[in-house]
Design a protein around this nucleic acid. Structure first.
Lengths: 108, 108
DNA sequence: TTTTCATATTCCTTTACAGGAATATTCCGA
DNA sequence: TCGGAATATTCCTGTAAAGGAATATGAAAA
């Protein structure tokens, strides 16, 4: 797992940008406007996200359209696999417990 | 999604600690030893991870045993749900493509 | 080819954070 | 209760990163 991904997402405004881009690609001005950020800082944040591979740019006239890239999030998902048993085990135990309750109920 | 989680994981040594703790709970000294970190920095990193809820402590004699906590990772997993369609769609398309290939093969 | 719009970059300042070294704290055993 | 082991905290310093303001770049329109 690449720390750069976490590092890029560790900044509130950048996380907001990522959330916003879930709805679809947007030009810089739109992003800045909706999140009430100044244009320069928006560009800077997009640079960081771009370096981390979380977004990609596409030029359209004098606009630059940013969109989300799946790879880093996919990697994060794969990374989570190695932890998933932690909570799934818990659910299994809860399952077992609930079933036990069910049996008791049937007995009574 | 809490930025604190990302922020805590955005540091290489801390990510290593988390990885190490996948194998099970460990006292500070063990962690420091295995990762070749100094004890004070190890404690500091563990503090950050603890504040982020990624680990928890249990006192045992004069040792302090740290272990992973599932919650933040579970939250991250849930958070990823809102992106999951991004790559699943891709796989669907790949699926469709592969099936198409299969059909062509059958035709020939 | 100017002007204008959209975006990127630079410079500056402030703040947060990481590591090193030293020290404080806490608990156990003699 | 004293010494020592395990861990936490503090102080210091260097560095990276964020925001503000100004400016540079690049493409479109006039």
């Amino acid at each position: 797992m690449n720390v750069t991904t976490f590092s890029a997402l560790a900044e509130p405004n950048r996380l907001d940008i990522v959330h916003l881009l879930r709805e679809g690609p947007l030009p810089v001005g739109e992003i800045a406007g909706r999140l009430e950020l100044n244009q320069p800082q928006t560009s800077k944040h997009l640079r960081v996200l771009s370096d981390a591979g979380l977004v990609e740019v596409q030029a359209a006239a004098n606009k630059r359209i940013y969109s989300l890239r799946a790879e880093p999030l996919e990697e994060m998902n794969t990374w989570l696999d190695s932890f998933r048993s932690m909570w799934e085990d818990r659910y299994d135990q809860l399952d077992a417990y609930l079933q036990q309750l069910q049996h008791k109920k049937e007995d009574s």
